[in-house]
Design a protein around this nucleic acid. Structure first.
Lengths: 218, 218
DNA sequence: TAATATTTTTAGATTAGTCTAAATTTTTAA
DNA sequence: TTAAAAATTTAGACTAATCTAAAAATATTA
């Protein structure tokens, strides 16, 4: 039996391992989980005991094969529930994270499978993040950060790096939601801000920070 | 903040209070919650501390106004999620209880309201139990146990008293699901079993036990 | 109404998950 | 390459929720 707390740690380790090449450190996990290093060490012992992670004192951790499966299944559930909340219940993309965080822990015989079918087997969640299939396979979609585009490049918004409500609401305000098209007009070397034209003809200036958190298919 | 465990106790007390006139006893709660009397006493102290129940040592408990609201909201959520699981995800009525038991604890700004709207404001759940509205008002539907019908009476199945999967699956097998019509042909005084005719013309013999667990609108 | 049975509460322990503070190990850099 | 800094672990404690066994209160009945 894997507790909710244990599941959340596995997901945190998965997230860190996605970005870092090396094993996930105690501090990185503590920061991701908003807790203390001491609590993390305690939990790592439990997870290692259950063979969900490979843990060597002072050396950080990696997910075991089984731990990886648990984390992947959780992310699958989380993202499917997000699709449900947005597509079926009409929530905005900045409102669904906390609810999905709870819904992902609900257990039931084939609940995920039926939810997936009900939603039409979506491949991406409302933020553009890929949803692994029942076998844990990830869909791939080539995309680039806005900050890597050159003047003249056109693209369609496909995802975000920053998932905070503030950023998502700002994008809503700018009309830069998933599927929105744009053309990069000019990049200002002084602060790396960019000028873009939206598909409905508006011209906008976006900061470097926005550029580093918005993904596009070019 | 009310914990999941506390919520479950409030629901248990609500259930008992529905049937009993007197205050809910420690033992009755222990039995409903599948735990020990000692654990119940501990929890009753916590709930009384939070003013969710009115508790006098050795005298049993009743829900306070606030406790009643919490319990009613929980039952509303539980039953709405059951409708979702059956109507939208295609689960059978005997499969949804445990999942709804988890889903009812999910918190979210207007999650219940949106779910209710999405489902079309259902008044009854898949077992025929009423779903309180957002203000905690209960729909009333006049119904009688099969065991109270007389020969010649006709009725439509509207609910069950026993919610166990075995009983629900047995009813499926007999074709006596919600909405099924029947006529009581004869009652055998020896064991209070009854002979009925279904709307599609089949004749069935049902035990006293079935009679005491099946509700009909006559 | 007094003895017995039943119910309820208390006492003391346990577990998961968390914390702070202290000790230890690893890393960094003078 | 050793001293200081940073990261990690250990030690000890806390809380919520649970348990068993014993004590106390209430209910039953002879």
């Amino acid at each position: 039996m894997i507790s909710h707390a244990e599941e959340n740690y596995l997901k945190a380790i998965f997230k860190i391992s996605e970005k870092e090449v090396k094993a996930a450190s105690t501090n990185a996990i503590a920061s991701e989980m908003q807790t203390t290093a001491a609590s993390v060490t305690d939990m790592l012992k439990r997870l290692a005991e259950k063979n969900l992670i490979v843990y060597e004192k002072y050396r950080g951790v990696e997910l075991s094969k089984e731990g990886n499966q648990v984390a992947t299944a959780l992310i699958r559930k989380h993202r499917l529930w997000e699709v449900f909340l947005v597509e079926k219940l009409g929530f905005a993309w900045d409102e669904v994270h906390d609810m999905a965080e709870q819904l992902e822990h609900v257990q039931g015989n084939d609940l995920v499978g039926r939810l997936d079918t009900f939603l039409g087997h979506p491949k991406f969640d409302p933020h553009g993040d890929p949803i692994p299939d029942a076998e844990g396979r990830w869909a791939f979609r080539p995309q680039s950060l806005l900050s890597t585009l050159k003047p003249g490049d056109r693209g369609v918004v496909t995802g975000v790096e920053d998932h905070t409500p503030t950023f998502l609401q700002y994008l809503d305000q700018l009309g830069l939601t998933l599927g929105a098209g744009l053309e990069l007009l000019e990049r200002f070397p002084y602060d790396q801000s960019v000028r873009i034209r939206t598909e409905d003809g508006r011209e906008l200036t976006l900061s470097e920070k926005v550029g580093q958190n918005l993904y596009l298919k070019v």
